[in-house]
Amino acid sequence: MNVILGAFAQGLLWAVMAIGVYITYRILDIADLTAEGCFTLGAGITCKLITSGCDPFVSTLAALIGGLLAGLVTGLLHTKLKIPALLAGILTMTGLWSVNLRIMGRSNIAILRETSLITMLMEGGLSKNMAAIVSGAALTVVVIAFLWWFFNTELGYSLRATGNNINMIKAQGVNTDTSIILGVMLGNGLIALSSSLVSQFNGFADISMGMGTIVIGLASVIIGEVVFGRRSILNSLIAVALGSVLYRIIIAIVLRLGMNSNDMKLISSILLVIALCLPAAREQVSKVLKNSLRKGGSTNA
């Protein structure tokens, strides 16, 4: 039970990261690797500020701003310098490694004895997992509400159309460079925000903690959509958040089955491959089922 609770807590903490990946991958149709560097960036900024005696709320907000700026760099590289999106993300990600080391000053910062959002909630009498669930859920709900509103504004419409049909939206007079930059910023801002919370839960930031972010994010997005649907924006946002929780539960189960935690990255990659194949596989199965039903019907007749 405790394992499931822990997985649930992790899932909610990472849900906003998955939503950030959803924005770039699904809304903008870009596989943005900035996520990897950005995840460390958010955690690094927060832990550095908290150890310097900064207020946890301010430190969390600073992570959001850091993420927005990282997204801005990738967005500018892609739109203004015409560097392919994938490469632009890789460039920012690589550059961020050094930036993160500069910010953190060393490769690992512990904040175990400092006051963080999580410890504040624990002082209120919550267990660590419950503190994570409360803070993760609160942040996720706020982010989903904000994005639901945003993607239903005029500006939100033009962002969605930019990822969906760039020729059409250009013909409607929208500067797609601006849409792309804005979307990439938003996605990375959320990723940094999520990692800020994760680092406060874990009690540390580590230079390599961002490795694998994009795979975990994509796995959450796709598992969520396959299981919970993608009929509307609101449906998708909720599905992705739940997908993040489901991902953690699957990982927890796999670890329980005797896999080593060193195998985590391999497991997440395999999980993403399976998730990516699921929609096609489902179609295949339903086709086979339909065929066998038809055959069965004809023999009966």
């Binding site: 945003f150 239903n152 504004t153 005029e154 500006l155 939100g156 007079g173 929208v174």
Partner: peptide, 8 residues
């Protein structure tokens, strides 16, 4: 027209 934060 410029796209604003008004409802779409």
């Amino acid at each position: 027209k410029p796209r604003t934060l008004k409802w779409g």
